[in-house]
């Protein structure tokens, strides 16, 4: 069994390879929130099927690979419905206001030294860190 950081690095290289293919072959930036969000708010237009094809790959490959990983992943996701709803709403609204998330602003933006990507990434990491301290250590809700 390899340590987690090696799997993290291998997984990261795969993620970056996906982004490189989407950029160099399709000419597009691989940002998950933008790909999903434009389908949701109807701004996708003609690129609808390209986005849906991308998302089909995102869903299908983990499903196909799962048997190689022991058939199951413990996602440790909370069962607290109010927390899930609040978190989902914040992620959905926030990423669409900021026009990007961990993949678009983080992986794709920072790797081209985009100022907006770097500022966004600093903001969401800081907010996430402060959030975990407040909600876990002070309030004990997560």
């Amino acid at each position: 069994m390899q340590p987690d950081w090696i799997w993290g690095l291998i997984g990261g290289l795969l993620i970056g390879t996906g982004g490189a293919i989407y950029l160099l072959v399709n000419g597009r930036i691989m940002g998950a929130s933008g790909i999903i969000g434009a389908l949701v708010d109807g701004s996708a237009g003609d690129s609808k099927w390209e986005r849906l094809s991308f998302l089909a790959g995102v869903i299908l490959l983990p499903a196909l690979l799962l048997p190689l990983y022991g058939g199951t992943v413990d996602t440790h996701i909370t069962g607290n419905i109010p927390v899930l709803v609040a978190a989902g709403l914040l992620v959905g609204i926030g990423t669409r206001l900021a026009n990007g998330c961990t993949s678009g602003h983080g992986v794709c933006g920072m790797s081209r030294l985009s100022l907006r990507g770097i500022v966004a990434t600093c903001c969401y990491i800081l907010a996430g860190g402060v959030g975990v301290v407040i909600f876990r250590h002070l309030l004990g809700v997560i």
Binding site: I36, G94, L97, V119, A120
Partner: peptide, 21 residues
């Protein structure tokens, strides 16, 4: 929009441990 949106996203990310991808 960039700063407020990223802060809101970060709080949600920390709450559930999930981002869109």
């Amino acid at each position: 929009k960039l700063v407020l949106g990223s802060v809101l996203f970060g709080i949600g990310w920390g709450l559930a441990g999930l981002c869109p991808g």
